[in-house]
Design a protein around this nucleic acid. Structure first.
Lengths: 182, 182
DNA sequence: CCTGCTTGTCCATAATCTTAAACACTCGAG
DNA sequence: CTCGAGTGTTTAAGATTATGGACAAGCAGG
């Protein structure tokens, strides 16, 4: 048995903030079983393990796919964001290292007068964001609007869209889109 | 027990062309156990299932990740390739539907009648490619197909596979595999 | 028709897993 | 300190799984 089922289960349970008894209650098994499994003193039957994981909840596939040796990074320092932009437009990607991302989260910064260009952008998915500094002119479909700090947007990315810094100081946006384009 | 472990195991075993006894011998368990598991008359312990899958070989993660109801596409017609390029650069993506790809690309060429030999190849990872000239007979798991120029393939390398030039002229393939085996 | 080899299934028993209950420990409140 | 409620662990007994062997069916060759 090369796979340490016990350590996996314990790691998952503690990650979810559950006690053995609480997990056992949710799963419909006894707390003793959880204890024994976590100590690798028994190799649970697939049906038992499934019952236990249902209490998390988590699928068997997820359980065995989980890579405990390289836990996914949760927090990212400022310089851990990956810069995708240029001198005028800074696009700093969150969790670029993560392989199976569902979201692209960007910290965007536009110099005065800068923007995404005259060409309208069109791609799949949806995107949204919040302006945190400066004034941004956002054009989506036929309509345009200037957004200031605290204001936000959300639209289907199939609609032609364009960003432009409409002020005299740099502006910043936190944006998110799915599926990942970077 | 919502997951049909028995059917999965049987499907995998037959795909690999193994009898219950042969798999049992490789796995170091009894053939009776294989039979009982496949009939879902027992829910094997994780350690037993691991032993059985080691005889294939296949990991627990792969076993539970396998989607039998919607098998991953193996063959792609010319128009099933997804174009990712533009007017200047054409990028036609193979198996765009499949998430989490990590590929290395090869340009392969087989002389008339040549191939990878009679032995089926089995290794870890995934591989795919495009035929650009000639005709190639590709056998993957139980199924075989002759692919011509513009057609493509993509499959998990754990499935026994074999390439053979099925035509009278040399054939060429642009292929990709992961992790790099050569 | 046999013989020999293969296949998958089934059964009694041995081995293992699961339960229920008790145990020891920690922590905070009274 | 003492109590209560929480934690994880342990153990014996009951439930389930795994084994080793027997069984019937299918197939190829003599």
């Amino acid at each position: 048995m090369s796979i340490d089922v016990g350590a996996r289960l314990r790691g998952i349970r503690t990650t979810f903030g559950l006690s053995q008894r609480e997990l056992a209650r949710r799963a419909g098994v006894t707390n003793g079983l959880i204890s024994l499994i976590e100590q690798n003193r028994v190799s649970p039957s697939v049906s038992s393990l499934k019952k236990v994981l249902d209490g998390v909840p988590m699928s068997l596939a997820e359980f065995f796919t989980l890579d405990l040796s390289a836990p996914l990074q949760t927090f990212f320092a400022r310089d851990e964001l990956v810069e995708l932009g240029n001198a005028q437009v800074s696009l700093r990607l969150v969790a670029a290292q993560r392989s199976a991302r569902q979201l692209t989260i960007l910290h965007e910064r536009y110099a005065a007068g800068a923007g995404t260009g005259d060409e309208m952008i069109v791609h799949r998915g949806e995107e949204g964001g919040v302006v945190i500094r400066g004034r941004v002119e956002l054009t989506v479909g036929g309509s345009a609007r200037v957004l200031g700090p605290g204001e936000a947007y959300y639209f289907a990315s199939q609609l032609p869209h364009r960003f432009r810094n409409a002020g005299r100081e740099p502006c910043e946006i936190i944006s998110a889109s799915t599926p990942p384009s970077f």
